[in-house]
Simulated scan of single mutants.
Amino acid sequence: NMWLLLLSCAGLLGALYALWSWFIPAVVQFNGSLALLWHDVIVERCLDAFTGTTRPQRLLRAVQERATRGDSESVIAAIDHFCRHQEWAMNVGDEKGFILDSVVSEVSPQTALELGTYCGYSTVRIARLLPPGGHLITLEFNPNYAAVARQVIAWAGLEDMVQVVEGASGDWIPHLREHFGIESFDFVFLDHWKELYLPDIKLLEECGLLRKGTVLLADNVVCPGTPDYLEYVRKSQSYESHYFGSHLEYTRAEDGLEKSVYLG
């Protein structure tokens, strides 16, 4: 009876492990809502409770263990490896990251703004492509995320090109000019709370921080989705917009980026 009980427990544990590590991740790969629920709610909370650490802290440790200090490409590779093989995270990801790279390279911005730093992955992608003298301001509401992002950015050797600013985007946008001497931005990357995309872009317009030719690039416009923002930039006479279809970071679920050029 004892052996049967032990075998039953071992079988149950094996089945649970297979569900956790393989079956459920494989199933949610193709459904963005399920992928976000599984990875960004259930798994993250379980691992936080089990390890006594946070996902950003675990991501930072992966960077410190795998990436070469001062080598931004190795930092990007380390985060992508962590997210694909250890623990999913809500970065722009490698697939959409190549689209981000191409747009930043095309614009070659002297002044860039990022709304939503998280752990600094997209910050590193943008900053490494800035021209000489280029500067990136990135706004992050969560101070714990900002603390990790600063370390990731420093590990990539890009701290002199990046200013991480803590606080709500709606509070900071009206004061960016006076605090940082910015007349307008050449490039804006939106990757924070999706319901803030539209009000923050309107606020940037009102504050005169967009010039004719400023390029906006918005992530996750399909998943989780930003329908009001898309309707605005696609129907407004002030923008010329183009959609780049892709996938939700590190999954096969549909997602994309919207590139919008401000026409003034």
Rank of each mutant, 00 (worst) to 15 (best):
G181K: 12
S241W: 09
H242F: 12
L230T: 03
H192G: 14
V164Y: 06
Q110R: 15
G134Y: 03
S21L: 05
L36K: 11
F185D: 03
E258L: 11
S169A: 15
L115E: 00
R234G: 05
L115Y: 00
F187V: 10
L100M: 02
P227I: 09
Y197D: 08
N31G: 05
A147D: 15
V107T: 09
A78W: 02
W3A: 12
S169F: 15
D101L: 01
F244M: 01
A168E: 15
E240T: 13
L113Y: 03
D80W: 04
L203E: 14
L209S: 06
I99L: 14
I126A: 07
L59F: 00
K212Y: 05
F30A: 10
Y232F: 15
G208W: 02
G93S: 06
E65V: 14
N91A: 13
G256E: 01
L203R: 14
W38N: 04
T53W: 00
E206D: 15
M161V: 13
E195W: 04
E44C: 06
D48M: 13
Y243I: 10
G116H: 05
D40K: 08
P132G: 08
R61A: 14
D71C: 06
A253T: 02
L216K: 04
A62D: 07
D40S: 11
V261N: 00
Y239M: 06
R128P: 02
F82W: 07
H135K: 15
E65I: 12
G93L: 05
D160A: 14
Y232I: 09
S238Q: 14
V188R: 01
G256Y: 02
A18V: 11
S102C: 01
D94I: 09
H175W: 06
P143G: 13
W22D: 12
G133S: 09
D186C: 09
R177G: 01
L129T: 05
L198D: 12
L158H: 03
E159H: 13
G181F: 10
C9H: 09
T51A: 01
L12M: 10
N31D: 13
F180Y: 15
A62M: 05
E195L: 06
A112D: 03
N220A: 10
V164F: 04
G97L: 02
G181Y: 06
Y197S: 07
H85K: 11
L203I: 04
Q86G: 01
D94Q: 11
D101S: 11
G170H: 09
V165M: 05
V188H: 01
S241E: 06
W193N: 13
E73I: 00
N220R: 08
V162K: 05
F50T: 11
P56T: 09
Y17N: 11
Y197Q: 03
E205I: 10
N144F: 12
F141S: 13
